[in-house]
Nucleic acid binder design. Structure first.
Lengths: 116, 116
DNA sequence: ATGATAGTCAACCATATGGTTAATAGTCCA
DNA sequence: TGGACTATTAACCATATGGTTGACTATCAT
C-alpha cells in the first residue's frame, strides 16, 4: 500500500503537529535511542510513546530496528525534506532562494544530486 | 492569549496536515479570493470551508478582510517560515547544507545575494 | 421592502487522537 | 526454569476533527 503524495504529506505534517513527537525527533537527532530511552524525558506511559513512534514511523520520520528485546529508534530526516520541499512552493520566504540555488549548485558540481 | 512557540508549531503543522487546506493555500498563492471562490474547486460545503479557513487563520497562514458581504482571504506565507525554520534544525537534509553553502558561494562570487 | 447572495454558527455524526491501565509477547539472565 | 525487563496490544475515556444539514446574520440589488 503505497501512499499517495497527498497522504504522505498528511501523515508527515500530522506527525509534526505534536510537541511530544517533535521532542522525540530532537532526541533522535542527538543519537539513536531505545524506546525506553525515548520515553525517559516524557511524563507519559510507554504505551503512548510506542504509539507516537508508530505515527512517526508511518510518516517515514523514524525507523525502528529490533535488537534483542530492545528496539533502536533512528531518525530518518530525509522525510522532512519532502515537507520542506512542499513549503518551498510558497515563494516569499528564504528557502525558496535556496531551492533555486540547488539547480545552480548541481550544475556547478558543488553538491551531489541525492533525489530521495 | 499569546500562544507558546510549541502551540504555534502545533497549530501550524496541524493546519498543514489536511489536503483541502493545503490546496486552499495554493489557491491563495495565485491570488486573493473570497470564501466563495475558495470553496469553488472543492466538493465540500461552505460551512466546512469556513472551518478550514478558521484553522488556517489560527495558524497564522491566512488573513481575512471583510469587504461588504464578502470576505477576502489572503495568504500569510511568513507563518510557513516558522515551520521551515524548525525543520532546518534537523541538519542532515540538504536544505541545511544549502544554507551553510550559501555563505561560501557568496564569498566565491558564484551567486548574488538574495537572488531569485 | 423583498428577495437573493455571502458567510458563520449550531447541532449532529463518525472517526482519529492523546491519554490511561492492564494484559500479553519476546528476550535476557541467574 | 522462572523472574525481570522491553515493547506492543487491547480496552477504555475524553476531546478534536472532517464532514453534513439547517438556521441565522449581514449585505447587496431591484
Amino acid at each position: 500500500m503505497v501512499n499517495s503524495p497527498q497522504e504522505t504529506l498528511n501523515d508527515l505534517f500530522a506527525a509534526l503537529s505534536d510537541q511530544t513527537r517533535r521532542a522525540i525527533l530532537s532526541q533522535l537527532l542527538e543519537n539513536d535511542q531505545t524506546v525506553k530511552q525515548v520515553a525517559e524525558p516524557h511524563a507519559i506511559s510507554m504505551a503512548m510513546i510506542s504509539k507516537h513512534l508508530q505515527i512517526l514511523g508511518r510518516a517515514g520520520l523514524v525507523r525502528q530496528i529490533k535488537r534483542g528485546r530492545e528496539k533502536i529508534c533512528q531518525l530518518e530526516p530525509d522525510a522532512l525534506f519532502v515537507a520542506s520541499r512542499w513549503m518551498q512552493g510558497f515563494g516569499q520566504f528564504e528557502d525558496q532562494n535556496l531551492d533555486a540555488l540547488e539547480g545552480t549548485l548541481l550544475d556547478l558540481g558543488l553538491i551531489e544530486a541525492d533525489e530521495g
